[in-house]
Design a protein around this nucleic acid. Sequence first.
RNA 1: GGUUCCUUGGAUGAGUGGUUUAGUCAACGGUCUGCAAAACCGUCUACGGCGGUUCGAUUCCGCCAGGGACCU
Length: 299
Amino acid sequence: MDTREKTLIVIAGPTGVGKTATAIELAEALGAEIISADSRQVFREIPIGTAAPTAAEQARVRHHFVGHKSITEYYSAAEFEADVLRLLPTLFATSDYAVMCGGSMLYVDAVCKGIDLMPTISPEVRDKVLRQYGECGIECIIAQLELLDPDYLRIVDLKNEKRLLHALEICLQAGVPYTSLRTGQVKPRPFRIVKYGLDMERAQLFDRINRRVDAMIEAGLVEEARSTYELRHLNSLNTVGFKEMHAWMSGEMDFVTARERIKKNTRVYAKRQLTWYRKDPTMTWLHPTCALPAILGSL
RNA sequence: GGUUCCUUGGAUGAGUGGUUUAGUCAACGGUCUGCAAAACCGUCUACGGCGGUUCGAUUCCGCCAGGGACCU
């Protein structure tokens, strides 16, 4: 099938701005389906805390990649890229459009621009690196990178240990410098991509976020957090809303503090999303209240 | 009316006679190529007003303004 006349419409923007509602209306108007680009809504155990589209919303428009994984499973931007590229031909077979809606910046970029091919890290390599880190600290990791990939050391933030560990893992796994695998090239896609960013006045956005957190709690966030408490060490639960609730449950903070911390961390997250998306020159910015007609009119 | 205490950046709250005036919270800006709602970095110099002492005052003294406590 020739998909070059097909269009992937990306709806991006900070959390809480109203991406889900806009995407659903847009998809309904176009007879399209929705690809969720959200690194946490993929987990089926935590729909409330991740503000995943509800059953009613999903009944209106078919959603993909919402709740299709368990919190115990590994998932990544690279897997998401592959999954979406595999799915798109199917969507384009019945529609000229697909709507990708999501706040996970790296996931959106993975689909739109591609991610360089990296080896999957084996458990042996991962354990080895973590063990070395535990035994002799970050200095030990840096020392090895000095030998294996000095170029990366020059550009990486040396205080960001997560990146250093990851770089060493890849060097060891691949047998070549991590830097040599980072081409930075944008992969061409066999379909059109148009990007729209939703944004609104900061005070209004923060107000929406604050109220959404209260609504989540009323909707059962506490129960959701309680049912995942035993698994709280999982990366999938290193998520705004859960780390704070779990901290409350383990006695590290009181409930009100946890609730307000969730709001604060969500606001910070929204700002980080905006920082990322602002850099994207291909993004067209719209206010959510007028986004639908603007997008439909521009297609 | 009397006695006494207080007055610091968006909030809170330390502190000092003089090169860089804490901390916390909030806010703001940024980084980002395989866990990304993650991880990380940066920014915000204020001492209520007016005078005085002093080489120099946010820090000492006086007066004024605002606030608190106690007494009558």
